[in-house]
Design a protein around this nucleic acid. Structure first.
Lengths: 149, 149
DNA sequence: CTTTCTGCAAACGATTTGCAGCAGC
DNA sequence: GCTGCTGCAAATCGTTTGCAGAAAG
């Protein structure tokens, strides 16, 4: 059962965090998390609805808010028309985004360790000079994706 | 005339780029650029309207689109309700943003050279592995600003 | 059982757009 | 003068919300 164990683990986390947020575990919520866990990039609402047509749009929006409050999902806003959703970073691992200026797509990319190290140094230095207490950072590369080249 | 020479220079740039984009130079457009050039952080539409009450809201939106197309202004979207506008980076110098999760404010911060160097290395490495052609990058620190601490 | 979720349809609000009159060049 | 900008008010559209019936616990 090696294959299903990751899903079981995720399922347990969902249950825990929803309970912690005084929310119920429902089929829609599990389906949303399951869908996002299979994606390699943040998804828009239209993409989510297309993949899970039985979930009403309003339920998708409402549940994604609940899941975000529970710390399971992260919402991303680009210059595109729609917001995008991905699993929280503690479930997917830290990563950054490649945003295509031609087609608007967003793709995940691993965070190079050298960059992360420089980021930690910079964060400390900025805290010292400005008093800003950073909780996390966000790095996007904006340009042209391979498909649009 | 040392003081006004920066404004004169900006004025010339505005004229050039608007002409290059086949757009007219109007009082509203110059007022918008002038306002943004005095700000040390990106401004929202309500802030812009409050500072320049003679500009109709629809004109502000329309002109900011024109100015963005002309490469004079840059639009920023956060999780906040409103988009924010700042002068294009080639007019202000490269910088990044501190985004407060409490009050939603956005503040400019200089880009530490060590970080920029690491970013250049990472960009090249990502291009090699993914085929993504980066045009520029965006780095945000998300956390709590000094005023909200 | 009671509370919360779901789907539908209506409401909301930031941004966009149509139109008649005015300003840039 | 001709073209394109301005302000007003109305339209647009992603997202949110009210409500009656269905599920979770």
């Amino acid at each position: 059962m090696a294959v299903s164990s990751i899903d079981d683990w995720l399922h347990e986390i969902v249950k825990e965090r929803l309970h912690a947020a005084s929310q119920k575990v429902t089929a829609n919520r599990e389906a949303l998390v399951g869908l996002l866990s299979t994606a390699t990039r943040p998804l828009t609402i239209p993409e989510i609805i297309e993949a899970k047509p039985t979930i009403a749009q309003s339920s998708a929006y409402r549940n994604l808010v609940v899941l975000e409050d529970a710390g399971l999902v992260h919402r991303i806003v680009t210059n595109d028309d729609f917001a995008r959703y991905e699993l929280a970073e503690d479930l997917t691992g830290h990563h950054h985004h490649l945003i295509c200026t031609v087609c608007g797509s967003v793709q995940d990319v691993a965070a190079p360790e050298g960059l992360e190290r420089a980021m930690r140094v910079a964060t400390k230095s900025i805290a010292r000079t400005t008093g800003f207490r950073a909780q996390h950072h966000r790095i996007d590369l904006v340009g042209i994706c391979q498909a649009c080249t």
